[in-house]
Amino acid sequence: MKLYALSDLHLRYEHNRKALESLAPHPEDWLIVAGDVGETLEHMDFAWRTLTARFQKVVWVPGNHELWTLTREQPALKGEARYQQLVEQCRSYGVLTPEDPYPRWPGEGPHRVLVPMFLLYDYSFRPDYVAEKDAIAWAMEHHILCTDEAVLHPDPYPSRSAWCAARVEQTLARLESLPPDCSTILINHFPLRYEHVRLPRIPRFSIWCGTKKTEDWHLRFRAEVVVSGHLHMPATLWRDGVRFEEASLGYPQQWTWRGDISRCLREVLPGRTS
C-alpha cells in the first residue's frame, strides 16, 4: 500500500484531461491531490470521477484556481461559500477535505496522520525591505500580477490576508490537539517555507505563494513529509531531516506526456529516506 501525491492538474486543458484518463489503476493506494485541479465544478467532477475509480482513497486540498469565481458558473459563489461548495462536492465522491477529521494512515509503519490544510497566502513571502502594503506594487514593478487579484474573492473576510490568518488559526488549533505520539504528513497547496519558493523567472510571484506563519510547522508538528504544489516545479527537497515533495503536474507546455502518467506521481509513503 502506497501514498502518492499529484497537484496542479489544470483540467481546463484537454491535454491534461486525456493524460489523467491514462493513469493506471492503483486500487490499493491512496492519492493526495494538492490543489489547482481546475476552475469549474465540471473540472472537479471530471477529476473525482476519474481518480476515485483508480485509487482506494483520495485526499484533496484547494489551490487558488478552485477558489476563483467565474461569472459563467451559476450560482457564482464567492470566498468561503465557494470553498464550502467544493467541500460538499468532494464529500459526494467520498474525497477527504481539510474540513474532515484527519485520517490515520492505514499502511505499514508508525502512527502517522494525514493533515490536509487550506491556508491561502498573506503576501509575507517577500523581502524584509518590502512592506506588506507595497507588496503588490513591488511585484508589478516586474509586470507580475496574479489573476487571483481579480477573481479570488475573500468574502466574508475583508482581504485574502485576513482569510489566511483565520485559516491558520483554525488549523493550528486542530494540529495542537493531535496526539503527541504521531507523526504527520502535512498537505497544503502552497509551500510552507519561503525558501522553497523557487521561481527563477518570476521571483516576485512569491507573494502569492504562502505565509511565513508556517515556516516552522514541519518541526513543530512532527512532519515526516510535507506535500505541496503551486510552483509547477516538481522536486524532492529536504530541510531539518524532513522531506518536502512538490507534486505539480502543471500546464501542458511545462511537461511531456508519453502514455500513462503514473511516472508523474510523487511517492509520499513509504517514499525516499535520504
Rank of each mutant, 00 (worst) to 15 (best):
1 M>F: 02
6 L>H: 01
7 S>T: 04
8 D>R: 03
12 R>M: 06
14 E>S: 04
17 R>G: 01
31 L>V: 06
32 I>P: 08
32 I>H: 01
34 A>T: 01
35 G>C: 05
37 V>A: 09
37 V>M: 04
37 V>Q: 07
41 L>D: 14
44 M>L: 14
46 F>L: 12
47 A>F: 10
48 W>Q: 15
56 Q>T: 12
57 K>M: 12
57 K>W: 11
58 V>N: 08
58 V>I: 07
61 V>Y: 05
62 P>E: 08
62 P>H: 13
63 G>D: 10
63 G>L: 05
66 E>F: 08
67 L>M: 15
70 L>F: 11
72 R>Y: 14
72 R>F: 14
74 Q>W: 15
76 A>T: 05
78 K>D: 00
81 A>E: 15
85 Q>H: 12
86 L>F: 08
90 C>M: 05
90 C>W: 03
92 S>T: 08
92 S>K: 14
93 Y>M: 13
94 G>M: 14
95 V>N: 10
97 T>V: 08
102 Y>L: 13
103 P>R: 11
104 R>L: 15
106 P>D: 10
106 P>F: 05
107 G>P: 09
109 G>A: 05
114 L>D: 11
116 P>I: 06
119 L>H: 02
125 F>R: 04
128 D>H: 13
129 Y>V: 00
130 V>Y: 08
132 E>I: 14
133 K>C: 04
136 I>A: 09
137 A>M: 08
138 W>G: 07
138 W>P: 12
139 A>R: 10
139 A>H: 11
140 M>I: 13
141 E>C: 03
142 H>I: 00
145 L>Q: 14
150 A>K: 13
151 V>Y: 07
159 S>Y: 02
160 R>V: 14
162 A>V: 02
164 C>N: 07
165 A>W: 03
166 A>Y: 11
168 V>P: 09
168 V>W: 04
170 Q>G: 13
171 T>I: 05
173 A>I: 01
174 R>Y: 13
176 E>A: 15
181 D>P: 06
181 D>L: 14
183 S>E: 15
184 T>D: 11
187 I>A: 06
187 I>H: 05
190 F>T: 00
190 F>Q: 07
192 L>Q: 00
193 R>I: 02
195 E>R: 03
196 H>W: 01
197 V>K: 00
198 R>I: 12
200 P>C: 09
200 P>Y: 02
201 R>C: 04
202 I>S: 06
205 F>R: 04
206 S>W: 05
206 S>P: 00
211 T>P: 04
211 T>I: 04
211 T>F: 07
212 K>E: 13
215 E>A: 12
216 D>G: 10
216 D>R: 15
217 W>G: 10
218 H>D: 13
219 L>W: 03
219 L>E: 11
220 R>N: 10
221 F>T: 07
222 R>C: 08
223 A>L: 04
224 E>V: 03
230 H>N: 03
232 H>K: 02
232 H>L: 02
236 T>P: 00
238 W>F: 08
240 D>I: 05
240 D>G: 10
242 V>D: 01
242 V>Y: 00
242 V>W: 00
248 S>K: 04
248 S>N: 02
248 S>Y: 06
250 G>H: 01
250 G>C: 02
251 Y>L: 11
251 Y>D: 14
253 Q>N: 09
254 Q>M: 06
255 W>I: 06
256 T>Q: 09
259 G>W: 09
265 L>E: 02
270 P>Q: 05
270 P>V: 08
